[in-house]
């Protein structure tokens, strides 16, 4: 691992150099009714658009690597015969400028299931392999529980990571491509003082986490409490709207539907991200629904994230970003649901 420090104004030069590619970063989209800024990941063209001190975005950067709707293939139909064309829908590298540790960890988790398991998916692989990530440290918000999930720092999965030391950035470099871009900035080796400053900044950040989730023995507890009444309590509140999945940086479930053009000569196979809270998630032809009740679907979402994924990959499929709880109209948050399953006071 290589560490450097740069003066803050140098960062604009890095941005300029990266602009030869498509650059996506946090921008301010407006304010909510209390005047709190709303941030979003968008394609950016100018360094001044970037809001690197953003709190969190409502939606993750998911649409740039797991689009909500994607064409998997197209068909040219001629009578009884047809030709299939597959396109992975990426034509140039993308730069994600200013991802927080949780969102980088979300990508690392998606890698496990989408790249490193049986049947790796090329649609995700091609976007992931053509991604340059500049990570940046964050200011913990009251709803963030990434520290409980072990995702408050990113160990890998990025090219460059910036930590704000006041007048300078502390820069961690993890790829040859990132190293290559250093030449566009004036960098220097960190001094012992920079190291100490970095440690102090990190320690101060750790102190700020408020929300917590106790994951001790959680896989077993979820099994034991499978029939627990608390699921019904949350199920009764849940609107089955699927918002939690669409704002989640790690939710990847989908459905496939085929469409045919009016001329009957062209057809396409479309993938749409789905949500396990939606009523038809487990419905089969003939009308049987394996999860007809909202509480069984909500329970399944927790079960998949905090048990199934742990069983398969020894980590949970939740990075504790808190987006789902913030977005939920029924105020269902992960820390509260898990605490209730553990019979803790909330």
């Amino acid at each position: 691992m290589i560490f450097k420090v740069i003066a803050k104004q140098e960062l604009a030069k890095l941005f300029e150099a990266l602009l030869a590619n498509r650059v996506v970063g946090p921008v301010r989209k407006g304010s909510d009714k209390n005047g709190t800024p709303i941030y979003s990941f968008e394609v950016v063209y100018d360094f001044t658009q970037l809001q690197l001190d953003y709190t969190s975005t409502q939606y993750p950067a998911k649409r740039f690597f797991l689009p909500y709707t994607e064409t998997l293939c197209t068909f040219e139909i001629a009578g009884d015969s047809w030709e299939k064309k597959v396109d992975f829908n990426i034509y140039q590298p993308q730069v994600l400028f200013g991802l927080h540790a949780c969102d980088i960890n979300a990508l690392n988790k998606l890698d496990k299931v989408l790249l490193e398991s049986a049947y790796p998916t090329p649609y995700y692989a091609s976007k992931r392999k053509n991604m340059f990530i500049v990570g940046i440290d964050c200011e913990p918000q009251p709803y963030c529980f990434c520290r409980s999930m072990g995702t408050d720092t990113a160990l890998h999965g990025f090219d460059m990571f910036l930590t704000d030391l006041g007048k300078k950035y502390f820069v961690e470099i993890q790829s040859a491509a990132a190293y290559n871009y250093l030449k566009h900035m004036q960098t220097s080796d960190p001094t012992e003082e920079d190291h100490l400053r970095y440690m102090a900044v990190e320690e101060a950040r750790h102190e700020k986490f408020m929300a917590q989730v106790d994951t001790t023995d959680l896989t077993k507890i979820l099994d034991m409490e499978f029939q627990s009444e608390v699921w019904k309590h949350w199920g009764d509140k849940c609107l089955s709207c699927g918002t939690c999945a669409s704002v989640c940086p790690t939710c990847y479930c989908y459905g496939v539907a085929e469409t045919v053009d009016l001329d009957l000569k062209h057809a396409a196979k479309m993938k749409h991200l789905h949500s396990c809270n939606l009523i038809d998630f487990a419905e089969v032809a003939g009308g049987h629904n394996f999860r007809p009740d909202s509480h069984t679907r909500l329970k399944y979402r927790y079960y998949h994230k905090h048990r199934g994924f742990v069983e398969a990959f020894e980590e949970s499929l939740c990075v504790g970003c808190g987006r789902c709880g913030e977005a939920c109209l029924a105020n269902i948050t992960v820390p509260e649901v898990i605490a209730s399953v553990r019979h803790e006071e909330i």
């Binding site: 299931v113 989408l114 049986a118 049947y119 990847y252 998630f281 079960y303 048990r307 199934g308 994924f309």
Partner: peptide, 15 residues
């Protein structure tokens, strides 16, 4: 919807 462990529609519990 996929047969390849990607769409999650076929999960039973978390299998």
């Amino acid at each position: 919807h996929c047969g390849r462990g990607k769409c999650c529609r076929c999960n039973v519990g978390s299998t």
